[in-house]
Computed example of a mutant assay.
Amino acid sequence: MRTRTLLPAVLTVASLTLVGCGGDGDSGAPASTSSPSSAKATASEGGGSAEVPEALRFTGTTVDGKPFDGASLAGRPTVLWFWAPWCPKCRAQAAETAKVAEEYAGKANVVGVAGLDGNDAMRDFVDQTGTGSFPHLSDEDGTVWKRFEVTEQSRYVILDKDGETVYEGVLPGGEGLSGKVAGLTG
């Protein structure tokens, strides 16, 4: 009887572990926006006010130990790049993601969301990959990953300027990321 009780839990853990560095496939379909919801609040920023969608109502700490407020992303398209420091597919996405962050600076946000390891390894990854030009959250407890229903690393969640999810999936080597962002900043 005990085996029957433990089997579903073991299978769930095994399936998450086997995900590895994400699938090679690209679902291409927009992710569900039911969680986080699209409800909005108003926040003041720089003397003005901006609508803050529910999706961006989160806080965290960067890998450098600085506080981060998701509300600061409101009003611009946003790329959330979910990565793990030991993931070779994430490492392969780093250069293209940094290039997109530089190319669309001031027009779109790019934020790395590191998980599945400790903060020291996350900082080392940022240093080694040259991706320090944009913020990276240290999501050791998986709060932001859960918020966006991300279950594997090397995954992108792209939000439009209103905070609606327009893409969720894997982009091997970051291929196609620039085009997706260009379509939102157009």
Score class of each variant (00 low, 15 high):
R147S: 07
Q153P: 12
H136T: 02
V150C: 07
Q128S: 12
T129E: 05
K146N: 08
L137Q: 07
E152M: 12
S138Y: 03
T131N: 09
V144E: 02
T151N: 12
E152C: 04
R155M: 15
K146A: 14
T129S: 09
V157Q: 11
V144K: 01
S138K: 04
H136K: 05
G142W: 02
S154W: 12
L159D: 05
G142H: 06
E140Y: 01
R155I: 08
S154N: 15
I158A: 09
F148P: 01
V126M: 10
I158K: 10
Q128K: 15
W145Y: 15
S138I: 03
E149P: 00
P135E: 04
G130Y: 14
R155K: 15
S138G: 11
V157A: 11
Q153N: 14
L137Y: 08
R155W: 12
E140P: 00
V150F: 08
E140S: 13
F134C: 03
W145P: 00
E140I: 13
K146L: 07
T151E: 10
L137R: 07
V157I: 11
G130Q: 12
T131Y: 12
G130S: 09
D139N: 03
T129P: 01
P135N: 08
Y156Q: 10
T131A: 11
D139I: 04
Y156T: 08
T151F: 13
L159K: 04
W145Q: 06
W145A: 09
T143F: 00
